[in-house]
Design a protein around this nucleic acid. Structure first.
Length: 237
DNA sequence: GCCAACGTTGGC
DNA sequence: GCCAACGTTGGC
């Protein structure tokens, strides 16, 4: 499980279909857990203590506005199905839009639920020859029920999730553009290490501080810094 | 509610 | 293909 790979099921999703928004917003402090779906998931539920540390105006959360979403651009067979889904695959879909299904990690899911249409995300290529940021996508539909959780044939089928109380959500994303150059993970890591010691925009970037999260938030500073290094090194805006 | 065993992610 | 990091499961 786990992973934010849209697989081609994406083809079935049409951006215009009016799905029902499955609750939006809210989630920041909760982390692991299912916090907002109340019942349903079996046993153990360590409901996050979303309460604490959540001060200030009740409706206020350090809302993120930028994201980084990982997907695998190279073929890999999982349960007999190829999970490949690179930025070129998104670009090739009708309207260059697809649904980001298959996320099976609570934190990643919660971040998707925080996403708002219009926000931008980096499309990150993972588990491949050259990991790194390949382009920019845009959130075009807020979180709604990920139908693949109920599909026994799907790689990300989750028998523990019931239709009356779905566990997993997805958003629709649209290809916006390739970055003027590919930004390798190794380069980002250099900035991160440097910034960690001397201070800088990427000193705390989730890509390294929470490496396994497939859907991550980026601060505006982080996002802008990354865009700026693209241009420093050659082209881009 | 602890925590060992287990499974997954994803760089290398 | 290895394996470290870390999330999840489930017994107790």
């Amino acid at each position: 499980m786990q992973k934010g790979h849209c697989s081609y099921h994406t083809l079935r999703c049409h951006p215009d279909e009016d799905g029902f928004p499955f609750e939006s917003g809210s989630s920041q402090g909760k982390d692991l857990s299912d916090a907002e779906d109340g019942v349903g998931d079996g046993k153990r539920k360590r409901v996050a203590s979303a309460k604490k540390s959540q001060k200030s105006t009740s409706s206020e959360k350090a809302a993120y506005s930028h994201w980084l979403m990982k997907s695998e651009p190279e073929s890999r067979i999982e349960k007999g199905v190829d999970v490949k889904f690179g930025i070129e695959d998104l670009k090739a879909l009708p309207n260059q839009t697809g649904c980001w299904d298959g996320v099976r990690n609570y934190q990643a899911r919660n971040f998707m639920r925080d996403m708002k249409p219009g926000q931008q995300a980096f499309f990150y290529h993972s588990n491949c020859k050259e990991p790194g940021i390949a382009g920019i996508i845009k959130i075009v539909k807020e979180a709604y029920v990920d139908h693949t959780q109920f599909d026994k044939k799907d790689v990300h089928y989750d028998p523990s999730s019931k239709p009356e109380n779905p566990k997993w959500s997805m958003v629709d994303v649209q290809f916006e553009r390739m970055t003027k150059r590919f930004i390798p993970l190794t380069e980002l890591k250099k900035y991160h290490l440097k910034h960690k010691s001397s201070g800088g925009a990427l000193s705390n970037i989730a890509l390294f501080t929470r490496a396994r999260l497939s859907v991550q938030p980026l601060t505006t500073e982080e996002f802008d810094f990354i865009l700026s290094v693209i241009s420093f090194s050659g082209k881009e805006e």
